[in-house]
Design a protein around this nucleic acid. Structure first.
Lengths: 189, 189
DNA sequence: GCTTTTGCCTAAAGCTTTTAGGCAAAACGG
DNA sequence: CCGTTTTGCCTAAAAGCTTTAGGCAAAAGC
């Protein structure tokens, strides 16, 4: 009986990889056990249940994505920062579709409050510092940016823009451009 | 042995209702059988498999949503049409979260091409007739509108805007307003 | 080196999907 | 109206996923 050295962390990472390969909702405790070549029940010493596995992958993905975004926007401002933010988001989703899907898992409020989701919100607000938006306008803008980026990436991943011209990349640039113009127009004089 | 009168149509509708109650991914052949108080295997005379059930619900939802949107935008133009389109979309998602999730199911290309998804694209383009966009700009705009509306609705359904001011409704109006302005700015002179 | 802890195991129950084959109710045809 | 065909729901059963309980041996601690 050789010990493989399972830990919640290793299981989470392997789960994230599995998610990217087969899709987040195909991530099961069974599939993970196969991947480590151990019996299914063995994983239950490290995970409370299947839900915990998914939550852990979600938190991991949120963190990883937040790190990437932070890296991308560091030292940038204005439209430059906006584009870097948008690209970081989109690139992550394309490189790691399963993890991206995981990051969208609905977390219970306490878990969400303790997650890197908070950093995401902060960084979005930071982007908007370049645009002089005041009061509720800032929140509206945060919500709009979140919606556009999430919406676009999720439609793109679903293959929505695959079989039609122009290229998705062009639309992406057009949209980022438009958002920049929109935010500048909304700026308080 | 009383016959209940199962048909693919009744199963689809019941599946849609079930989706709204418990979430689209909790819709199972088993749950549906329980709802009709018949044995699970009985449903397999009417459905090829679980996937077909889900696809049927998705197609049903797409159709229903397209009907609603068509109704909402009929006789309107410009910003008025844009707002009606947006609201129809959002209201459907809030009234029928499970069906809305179903409508986002990834369909294989042929199924998608034969679905009401085509009408959705046409109606989005129709909205843009009020904004004099030419060539690729129109496609970019279609993609952006789809992204914003889908993104917002999906974040809202996930509870993303629940515990913070200002009210979600205000942001929604702000966003529709902003999109209208954006599209007017993009119009070719 | 001996004890305690830990990690992976077997066993088993419950749920979902799916296929195969059976029997009785409904529909059809004379 | 009765006999035949079709249809609809049934039982049975296999295979996969989740989860719990209890066991044994490897690793860690003294």
């Amino acid at each position: 009986m050789v010990r493989v050295g399972l830990t919640p962390e290793r299981l989470t990472l392997a789960g994230a990889e599995l998610a990217d390969e087969v899709g987040f909702d195909q991530v099961t405790v069974s599939a993970l056990a196969r991947r480590f070549d151990v019996k299914v029940a063995s994983l239950y010493s490290h995970l409370k249940n299947s839900q915990e596995l998914k939550t852990r992958i979600a938190l991991f993905a949120l963190e990883e994505l937040a790190d990437r975004v932070a890296d991308a926007v560091a030292g940038r401002a204005g439209k430059d920062a906006l584009a870097a933010f948008a690209d970081a988001y989109r690139d992550y989703a394309r490189e790691h579709p399963g993890r991206y899907a995981a990051a969208r898992l609905r977390l219970d409020p306490e878990t969400a409050a303790a997650s890197a989701g908070v950093r995401h919100a902060q960084m979005t607000r930071a982007i908007l510092r370049g645009y002089d938006l005041t009061g509720p306008d800032q929140t509206h803008a945060v919500r709009m940016l979140g919606s556009v980026f999430h919406g676009y990436v999720s439609l793109e991943l679903a293959g929505g823009f695959e079989h039609s011209a122009p290229d998705s990349q062009e639309s992406w640039l057009w949209i980022v451009d438009s958002l920049d113009a929109l935010l500048r127009n909304r700026a308080t004089p």
